[in-house]
């Protein structure tokens, strides 16, 4: 048997418990495209607006002076939506991934799209993804990642599904011939 330690997220919010959904929405949808010319991954993430509101409640007010969208979205995504995650320090409790740049948000009915991209130009597309997004709201969340780059022959790669049980998975961006 292995014994692991785990910590609790520092923010306690009584508001969250009120929104335990019996009729689950519990998903996000993400479109990702590797742009080899720009050396960046371009990301469009669709959230339910109630989830966005919940995230904002919990994370926007968590720190001081979080005024702009860039200011609070990017740190959140860099902690909870990681491309090529690596452990930081010895504790293995903190993970970090590729830094992001915020592009903007757009409402779409009951949903909202978040647009962001990897901040640094690189030669290689990321190879894995790990998320913690919304698992602190409910353990049933499903995050579906659709890579938009096409496979040879024009087919779309199979979507990657992240759950609390399987929060980390490999990403394969097809390379244009």
């Amino acid at each position: 048997m292995m014994v692991h330690g785990f910590s609790t997220a520092s923010t306690v919010c009584t508001y969250l418990a009120a929104l335990l959904l019996m009729h689950p929405v519990h998903e996000t949808v993400c479109e990702m495209e590797w742009d080899p010319q720009r050396g960046r991954v371009e990301i469009a993430l669709r959230l339910d607006r109630l989830d966005e509101q919940w995230i904002e409640h919990r994370y926007r007010t968590a720190g001081a002076d979080k005024e702009t969208e860039q200011d609070w979205h990017v740190p959140l995504l860099e902690k909870q939506f990681l491309l090529d995650p690596v452990s930081e320090g010895d504790s293995k409790k903190q993970l970090s991934g590729r830094p992001y740049r915020w592009i903007g948000r757009k409402e779409d009915g009951a949903h909202v799209w978040w647009f962001f991209e990897t901040a640094k130009q690189t030669d290689e597309a990321p190879k894995s993804i790990q998320t913690r997004l919304l698992f602190d709201r409910h353990s049933d969340y499903t995050h579906r990642i659709q890579i938009l780059n096409k496979l040879p022959g024009g087919a779309a790669p199979k979507a990657v599904v992240l759950t609390e049980q399987r929060p980390k998975q490999a990403l394969t961006f097809p390379v244009a011939p």
């Binding site: 785990f6 910590s7 609790t8 997220a9 306690v12 418990a17 913690r132 698992f135 602190d136 609390e164």
Partner: peptide, 15 residues
């Protein structure tokens, strides 16, 4: 119920 992912951290409310 199957195990949730406890690493690297678990939310306070979940715990």
């Amino acid at each position: 119920e199957t195990a949730p992912s406890l690493q690297p951290r678990i939310s306070f409310s979940h715990m």
